[in-house]
């Protein structure tokens, strides 16, 4: 177990900047997710932490020891980490136990100890029965468990997980997510978890760092991140909120494109001027008096329905009780609750 400190990391591939001045502290025993769309630099950040990539500048400390910095470049094998790869990276020429034993063999432990620790690690991931199997005989979920056991067997200071669940089907993902949570409760290892799935991040993390275009937009506990997004991007990515660009005039929001007018609910802090409107689908209401909009599609979700309206160059999504309406009908839409971010 160790704390992690990332300070001022920059990394570009050729002319393309990937990580642009990223700083993040992870406390001992904490699980922090790096959440963001593909290409936001989250995997690169994780790989720099592992020592598989070297930043152009910046400092990385693990447990107070500088592992990356000016003139310092501790190779991955001497960082005392465990890592689970998106592709599993289970060696196909080794059996399950040989895969798990590998980190211990490199540490020159006695055979008996290796055997007992491998057994224990396989018990953690419930694979004792498959110890002698070859990887090609295993399913995706089982392979990912092997990777997890291999990453944890040598008691790493930090466990890095690179989209460990994204190659699995929905049911397995649920199961393995619960298993990671259970392992964390038992071992208390510091973990950094990279994902593009906000549900995964919300369910597992102590804190989430939302990344966009190489920078962290917000780091917070899941609930706070959901309730109080610091930027329109976080609101859109984490809460699935509608994001509209426009300006406020006379207590109403006008979209920049098409100049559709939405009256704002009383009590919304809304100084006049250009801004971005963020409103969750469930915070929009149909019926009652509101802005009349043509319905383009209605999706039945079971407990509710999603209604889509083309507005301001995007689709405004409204979630509410299912109603008998048809595409093409004009329905009044009212904002019940919204957040505004001044721009420019």
């Amino acid at each position: 177990m160790a704390s992690i400190a990332l300070g001022g990391l920059f990394k570009s591939y050729g002319a393309t900047p990937v990580v642009r001045g990223l700083s993040l502290d992870v406390r001992e025993g904490e699980l922090v997710s790096l959440l963001g769309p593909s290409g936001c630099g989250k995997t690169t950040t994780l790989r720099m932490l592992a020592g598989l990539e070297h930043p152009d500048s910046g400092v990385i400390r693990i447990g107070g020891e500088t592992v990356t910095g000016p003139g310092v470049r501790v190779p991955p094998e001497r960082r005392g980490l465990g890592m689970v790869f998106q592709s599993y990276a289970v060696w196909p020429h080794r059996s399950v136990e040989e895969n798990v034993a590998y980190p211990l063999t490199l540490r020159r432990l006695a055979k008996a100890e290796v055997a007992s620790r491998v057994k224990e690690a396989l018990r953690w991931v419930r694979l004792e029965a498959l110890a002698t199997r070859r990887p090609h005989e295993l399913s995706g979920g089982q392979l990912q468990r092997v990777a997890l056991a291999r990453a944890l067997v040598a008691s790493p200071r930090v466990l890095l997980l690179d989209e460990p669940l994204s190659n699995l089907d929905a049911a397995l993902r649920e199961e393995l997510r619960a298993e990671i949570a259970a392992l964390r409760a038992r071992l208390g290892t510091t973990m950094v978890f990279v994902t593009h799935d906000q549900g995964e991040a919300l369910a597992l993390s102590d804190r989430i760092a939302v990344m966009n275009q190489g920078v962290i937009e917000q780091v917070d506990a899941p609930e706070r991140l959901y309730r109080e997004p610091a930027t329109p991007f976080v609101a859109g990515f984490v809460g699935g909120a509608n994001v509209l660009v426009g300006q406020v005039r006379d207590g109403a929001f006008h979209t920049a494109q098409g100049d559709t007018r939405f009256p704002l609910p009383p009590g919304t802090a809304a100084p006049d001027g250009p801004c971005t409107l963020v409103v969750r689908p469930e915070d929009l209401e149909l019926g009652a008096e509101g802005t009349p909009l043509p319905l383009s599609a209605r999706l039945f979700l079971g407990h509710a329905a999603e209604y889509r309206f083309p507005v301001g160059g995007t689709l405004l999504r409204v979630v509410g009780p299912p109603r008998e309406v048809r595409a093409g009908e004009v329905l009044p839409v009212r904002i019940a609750k919204a957040k505004l971010f001044a721009t420019g």
Binding site: L52, E77, G82, M83, F85, W91, L106
Partner: peptide, 11 residues
């Protein structure tokens, strides 16, 4: 990632 996994494992 097969080689990288070995690196992170300590090789």
């Amino acid at each position: 990632s097969l080689a990288e996994a070995a690196r992170v494992s300590g090789a």
